[in-house]
Amino acid sequence: MANAEPLELIHEAPRRARDVLARRLADIVGLPSSRLTPRERWIVADLLFDILKASDVTVRQRCARRLAGLVEAPGRLLRVLACDEYEVAEPILEESRALTDFDLLEIVQAGTLQHRMAIARRENISEIISAALVSAGEPPVVECVLKNKTTALAAPTVDRLVGAAQDEVRYAALLIRREELRPAQAFRLFWDCEHAERFQILERFAVDRTILIDSTEDIFPMVSKEGWDDPLVTRVLRYIDRRQRNREAAGLSPYGSLEGAIDAFCVEGAQQELVSEIATLAAIHKRLLLRMIDDMAGEPLAILCKATGLKWTSFQGLWTGLGRPAQDDSVEPARKVYDSLSVEKAQTVLRYWNLTFEDAERR
């Protein structure tokens, strides 16, 4: 990447003629193609490059400002100025439309934090460049990328950021506003969010399944006749099904129902047997229920209660069974979630989570 190295100033006293010549050469380089052939432009750019090597920062700054707005500026000259000291590079990094993705990738790798911040502020950053900026792992740059509404984010980049939000909590609020965020990513992000962000995720992504349910209603009897022996169909229909609870398990349970198991939980606490029983009766993975129990906020348990048709008193039973005070600050946000979600929407969230845990177990 020799062509993108910062210009090294040759030790020489500044001269007025050199400054004027640099300006003239920059003006010539910027002439439209109707007045200057490509070969002539390359020659002039080479001469200007030599002059800039022997010029001070002020001259290089002036040249960079002149070239920043030119669509036909020579790539080599742009790259070396864009990798120069930030005060020289800034106008080219933020304004030049002549920089290609290849150029920007070089600058992302060779530049400083300030260079990457300037690139992150550019309009219409491609998925390739945003991925390179995010991979550097610098929170100020990542936040700038996420705030830039004209930036394109590829799905793998969003996945990476959702994972990074576990350590950088500020990412969550910015990711929620991105159009690229998909339901599976949002519900994974949910666990690392504060109350306000969690509610935003539910408002945006907790949808009902009316069309799915109506369109597949006749398939359930077909699959039942086949003995539910197609694992893939069974998996999809479990997401669509109106029912959440495991009715067969309720008939065999010593507690008689999900409500009965929760009543026992309220008295006995989070005993392993009770946790397993509640997970079975609610038709969810035990590890998912443990994740809900470990979550110190109340929204996940509120979603479980709403999705399974439980009354609010069952949430209170789970909450106090965990040894948490009834007047805890997390109860009010949980009640807000419980009251705002329909059963179908709560089931959508719960089933996305459950599929995630089942997929993780299979891997």
Rank of each mutant, 00 (worst) to 15 (best):
D218M: 08
V29A: 14
D46S: 14
D359L: 12
L232H: 12
R122V: 09
V223W: 02
F187R: 10
P74S: 00
D27I: 02
V29K: 11
D218W: 10
E358N: 08
R324L: 13
L318V: 02
N148T: 02
C266I: 00
L105E: 14
P254I: 02
D339Q: 13
A82K: 06
E180D: 13
R245I: 15
P14W: 08
G323W: 12
P333L: 03
L212W: 14
K306R: 15
E332H: 08
V29D: 11
V233L: 15
D328G: 03
R242W: 10
P139C: 05
P221T: 05
A73F: 11
L289D: 09
T151C: 15
R238W: 05
G269A: 11
C305T: 01
D84I: 09
K147G: 14
F199N: 01
L274G: 09
T151H: 09
D359E: 13
F102K: 13
D101L: 06
L281K: 09
R39Y: 08
Q272A: 15
E8L: 13
A264P: 00
A165L: 11
V169R: 15
L104R: 14
A155W: 10
I28Y: 07
A186I: 13
G163P: 00
V233P: 06
D167V: 05
G269N: 12
A132M: 02
D50Y: 08
V158H: 01
I219W: 11
G269H: 13
S34N: 07
T58V: 13
L232M: 09
D19L: 12
I213G: 05
V223S: 00
L281S: 09
L133Y: 09
I28T: 15
E168P: 00
R238M: 05
V80E: 00
D84T: 12
A89H: 07
E180W: 02
S215N: 13
V57P: 00
D19I: 06
G321H: 04
T151Q: 08
E217G: 01
G269C: 10
P156N: 04
L105I: 11
L310V: 00
E226F: 08
G163A: 14
G227A: 04
P300Y: 04
A68H: 07
P32I: 04
A136M: 04
E344R: 07
L70F: 07
L258M: 04
L341K: 11
P139E: 10
T234W: 08
R247Q: 12
I28K: 08
D263M: 03
D159F: 09
A283Y: 03
A17S: 15
E143F: 02
K286N: 11
A172D: 06
V141C: 03
N3H: 13
L52M: 10
A334F: 01
R60K: 15
D103P: 01
R291M: 05
G137I: 03
I51F: 10
Q327Y: 01
A184T: 12
I28N: 01
D218I: 04
